[in-house]
Design a protein around this nucleic acid. Structure first.
Lengths: 255, 255
DNA sequence: AGTCGGACGTGCGCCAGCGCACAGACGTCC
DNA sequence: GGACGTCTGTGCGCTGGCGCACGTCCGACT
């Protein structure tokens, strides 16, 4: 992790952007811009976390490694969220780990000012809690998806989710890495990706995956993608606009 | 759901039991003892919840049903926890549903007093948040388990977890039901259960599963069981004793 | 421009779990 | 105690994904 000299914009992170000015001002002095490198490990199982991370352009993967060494991502975190939920939930550690899946920028916040902000009256607490609920929704969707859907569907879902977190339509990502995220063999990814390429949905060359036909990919993916996306939208639509939405808003989005 | 006339003990639920007397007194008038029947649906996807449920002897299963109709439990809730996390997280609904997996008793708490108790200074908020973190740990473990472990391992894990929530060593449960919890075929359960019975770990007859050799079952299960159990113990050990534990307690338990 | 290492394609055999179909077996309820 | 419905055992063939072992090819670096 590297501290960066120039000053990117914290409001590229949706959670930070959703804070009212007064609350943001209190937090700002504690926000350190950092650059996260691919593969960097932010925390490991049972390790006490010291910081929360609010990604802007970076994407982080929370995953679990089984006793036999097999790994699987259960949720990804990008500019829509943060890493370090246990810091305000009270547990301080988890049995999972966090690795950087896409290199990029983020803001680092020490656990103490985070906890203060969480406990201070204001919008921060509700915001973090709603994000945590969205996280639960994503993890449980992953559980169901792992159980019932094919590798091709899961790959499609994963590409779409990751694309939503990345800028542009290209992911810098080897098939090996994708495989370790999905918890499947590299060959299975090659296979599924080959099919998606034949359909003309994606194109890739040595570590670069480009999504050409987003619609097609969505049609090919299982419903898990849209369920997660809607749940994120519902829970994290900008709080400053929350009051203006009619109560039936959820139903309409979900329809 | 039936209201019961006689008065069981709320402190059979670990969360309620962990509250200091003063806080419990404020909550008690709002706690309604109820009897939950097998198969009863507590909430369905996107439905606004009206109550939280604190099981004492009942066990509830949170599960997700895919677009194609396949189902899978991603976490169970017994006397160690509660159903209705979204009520205090701010989302009010989820994309999953909750059904009664083992008939029994529980306490029902209306969303408003729950929210009040959550927002009131005291131990309730921390308690609920730590439980929520334990829930996340369980769900993510389920995701990994679904990905990497065999039906036999998963069945063992599930039996153990359910047994921890039930009184005694017998589960009243058809293989069909177990299958729908695990999200596998009934025949796969018959098969796995047959093996476990051959080993002498369990015995069953028409809807009654009895665990004979708990140790053996634990050895046969994947690590997911012990990981979840330790995480629950760590996060929900009686709050009144929390301060007495040395900070390295986690490491020792995990070793 | 040549080299070399990492990334991708492909072809096996293998096996867990699925879907289907049917037979036995328990137990409950007349 | 007989009958019926439900739960459980078993036997297929099928397929998706795994593990392994290559071959190939891109592209970065000298």
């Amino acid at each position: 992790m590297t501290l960066v000299a120039h000053s990117p914009n914290p409001s590229q992170n949706q959670l930070l952007a959703a804070l009212p000015n007064a609350e943001f001002e209190l937090l700002a002095p504690h926000l350190e811009p950092v650059v996260l490198a691919l593969g960097e490990i932010l925390y490991e199982p049972h390790q006490h976390m010291r910081h929360a991370i609010f990604p802007t352009s970076a994407v982080i993967s929370l995953h679990y490694v089984t006793a036999s060494g097999a790994a699987a991502e259960f949720v990804g975190v990008g500019h829509e969220g943060m890493v370090g939920v246990p810091l305000f939930m009270g547990g301080d550690t988890t049995s999972s780990s966090a690795v950087v899946q896409t290199a990029g920028q983020a803001y680092r916040l020490d656990r103490h000012p985070l906890k203060q902000a969480f406990e201070r009256p204001g919008l921060m607490q509700g915001l973090l809690l709603r994000y945590t609920q969205a996280l639960i929704a994503q993890v449980s969707q992953t559980a169901a998806c792992n159980r019932h859907h094919s590798v091709e569907q899961q790959l499609s879902r994963w590409l779409l989710l990751t694309l939503d977190r990345a800028p542009g339509r290209e992911l810098v990502m080897t098939q090996e890495l994708v495989a370790s995220m999905l918890g499947v063999r590299r060959e299975s990814v090659t296979d599924a990706a080959g099919k998606l390429q034949q359909f003309g949905f994606i194109r890739y060359r040595r570590g670069h995956i480009t999504v050409i036909d987003r619609q097609g990919l969505e049609a090919r993916a299982c419903e898990c993608y849209s369920v997660v996306k809607k749940e994120l939208a519902r829970l994290l639509c900008d709080v400053r606009h929350r009051q203006e939405l009619p109560p039936t808003h959820i139903e309409r989005v979900g329809a």
